[in-house]
Amino acid sequence: MTIITAHDLREGRSLVDPALFQKLTERVATEHDHDLGMAARIVDQALAFLGTTATHQGRPLSPSDEVDPGWHEFILHTVDYAAFCERIAGRFLHHVPTDPEDPATLGESAHEAIQYTVDAIATAGFYVDTDLWPTAHSVACSQCHQGCTSSTAP
């Protein structure tokens, strides 16, 4: 039997240069009123989410309310974000808002979407900061503007 410890898991921050990680952390702290420690956790989990999205085969993944600002701030650094996407995925990782008028996007609860994403991140070998991925019944929506997901199209 193999036992996996937290030390065996990858951190999202390992996917980018430390200077870029710091720049994103500072941006999240400033724009979303977090201390640097919380902002670093958010950016780390956004990167783990994106790293998982890059290779995930299956339905689209969805960030939590807590993690989504890390993705949003990274997207604003378009040159860095595009280079990151090309390096880890070989393609651009689009941010796709959920269309509340599309029946294909309805029916899955936020709890199920977040749990599916958390399971995928863990399966990909990343550390999951469970405080930033609420899976309790209190989750009202998966994140920004009624939900958004990663793209699955290559």
Rank of each mutant, 00 (worst) to 15 (best):
H137K: 14
A48K: 11
E66H: 13
A6M: 12
S62N: 12
P63F: 07
A54I: 06
H7P: 00
C144M: 01
E73K: 11
I42E: 04
V96C: 09
Y116W: 10
R27D: 14
T149F: 07
F126M: 02
H111Q: 15
L61K: 02
P18R: 08
V43C: 00
I4A: 12
V118D: 06
S142G: 04
R59K: 13
A120F: 02
P97A: 05
A153R: 06
T105V: 01
E26N: 15
V128H: 13
D102V: 00
R41W: 01
E101K: 01
T5S: 15
D33F: 09
L15M: 06
Y127M: 15
P60G: 07
A19H: 08
V43T: 09
D35Q: 08
T152C: 11
G58S: 11
G125E: 08
A89F: 13
I42N: 03
G125F: 11
L36S: 08
R41N: 15
L47R: 07
P97D: 08
G51D: 06
K23R: 14
L15I: 10
L76R: 11
A29M: 01
L50Q: 04
W71G: 07
V118G: 04
R87W: 02
P134K: 11
R41L: 08
A48E: 03
L47K: 00
I3F: 02
V67W: 10
V16H: 08
T98W: 05
T123K: 10
G70A: 05
H95N: 14
T130Q: 12
L93C: 09
V96Y: 01
V67K: 02
V128A: 14
A54H: 04
E66K: 14
K23F: 11
V43R: 01
Y116S: 09
A104G: 04
H111P: 00
S142R: 15
T130C: 02
R59V: 03
L61G: 05
P18V: 00
G37M: 08
C144T: 06
P134F: 13
A120V: 12
L36E: 12
D99E: 05
V28P: 10
L76F: 02
T55H: 13
G37A: 14
A40C: 10
A46M: 05
I114Y: 10
P103H: 03
S150E: 01
K23G: 00
D44F: 04
A54N: 13
H77E: 12
E101R: 13
D99L: 05
G58Y: 08
T105Q: 03
G107Y: 09
Q115G: 03
T123V: 05
A104T: 03
Q57C: 02
E108Q: 07
A40M: 00
A120Y: 04
L15D: 04
W71F: 08
H7K: 15
I42T: 12
S62M: 10
G147F: 14
Y81Q: 10
Y127D: 05
A40Q: 01
T105F: 02
H94M: 05
P69N: 01
P18N: 07
P103R: 04
T78I: 13
V16Q: 03
P97Q: 05
F74C: 09
I88N: 00
W133R: 10
E31K: 14
H7E: 14
S109F: 10
T105P: 03
A46F: 08
W71S: 07
A124I: 12
V43P: 06
W133C: 11
A39R: 11
A29R: 05
R10M: 13
G37T: 12
V128M: 02
A122H: 14
V43K: 01
D65G: 07
D129R: 00
V67S: 00
D129P: 04
G147R: 03
